[in-house]
Amino acid sequence: MKSLSFLSCFFSKLTRSGAMLALAATLVAFPACGNAEQAAYHVATVAEGLDTPWAMAFLPGDGRILVTERGGRLRIVDPGSGDIGELTGVPEVDARGQGGLLDIAVHPAFPEEGWVYLTWAGEDRGRTATHLGRAMLDLDELALSDLEVLYVADPFFDSTAHYGSRIVFRDGYVFVGFGDRNFKNFGPDHIAQDISNANGATIRLALDGSVPEDNPFVGQQDADPAIWSYGHRNIQAMTVHPDTGAIWLAEHGESGGDEINIVTRGGNYGWPLASYGVDYRTGQPFAVPHDETDEFIAPVHHWGPGRTDHFPPSGMTFYTGEAFAEWQGHLLVGNLYHRYLGLFAVDGESVSSPERLLEGRGLRIRDVAVCPGDGSIYVIADDSDSPLLRLEPTANDARQ
């Protein structure tokens, strides 16, 4: 018997409602890119009319999906009917530039622990900083309450770019990746090399926002004790490896130089002193490539230099479902500029070049998630009128 969660995620009963019958008409068949042995898939439009969505999170035991919109709305989507609701109690955000309401993640013990975690760009006297907070979720009232700001990546800057930010949980802690706020200084005094603040860094906190005593820079003078790793440019993708528990992230480079990294405690990833990118303005190198120095931790996969060879990422997850058996352990990452969903085979710390899913549909992929019930793949795009899409196996390839 399939669980109710499975039924709410998977498009299996076309007769549930007229809305579901209409949804059936939106199915389009696409062959999988690349190897012939990889599964074919089709695409269903689950819901329509999302306004510049940025992140999504499944509600365990419920089947519905929380979706942030960068303008400041938090939506809740029923994937069975396609209905979209709106929650109240969302923090005030600054949506200028790349800011707004950003990532969302559900407490690992939800629904027993009713917290949801959010990141957003907050404003103070015209300047902005990335915020991490949590609030209690009331599904009956469709409301957030008891909002707590857990961390602010201060200082506030006169910049509306490179906020990051993604949230993951591991071992009872919350990790968040931030951006470098788009500072163009390529020297050693760049903000991402300054551990007195978390811009261009990842942080690790207890779930209540307190700083763990075993963080790498606790007790170090002029260091932010929340920092876990640093030397990053603009982290817009993070996930936890399902087997090793390692945190993987993907970050934007400068005209190429996009990277996939495995996060290590206290690690310096080199930005902007080591990079495979080149200066947007001049097209010239500004840093030594990682493979020419052992001073910094090198990415496990990279692109560049130049705009023709780059992969500006957003949204990232390992595939662990049953719907696409051939993709078990593969990495799914959204590509903003080239507008496709990358499917990467992973062998240990070796990452292949990606197969291109959803290519040709013009979608700046912003986030990707795997339904915990049936293993179908959900995708949102960066657009003012964006659909929520679901990738499923074709009928002759569906798993029993």
Score class of each variant (00 low, 15 high):
D222P: 02
Q221I: 12
P272I: 09
Y269C: 03
Q220W: 13
P242M: 04
A223W: 06
W271P: 06
D224T: 04
I247V: 14
H252C: 11
A250L: 03
N234K: 13
P272E: 07
A274L: 03
R265M: 13
E254G: 00
W271T: 07
G267C: 06
D243V: 15
T239I: 10
D222G: 10
G277T: 11
V263E: 10
H241M: 00
E251I: 06
W228P: 00
A246G: 06
R265E: 15
N234I: 12
P242V: 08
S229L: 02
G231C: 09
G267L: 07
N268R: 04
T264Y: 15
V263N: 04
W271C: 08
T264D: 13
I260V: 15
M238T: 04
D258H: 10
V240F: 07
N234Q: 10
V240G: 01
N268H: 14
E254P: 14
E259W: 03
G266V: 12
S275N: 12
G219A: 12
A223F: 06
A274P: 07
R265L: 12
D243T: 14
G256N: 11
Q221P: 12
E251A: 04
A237W: 07
G257I: 01
G256D: 07
H241W: 00
G256I: 12
T244K: 00
G219K: 12
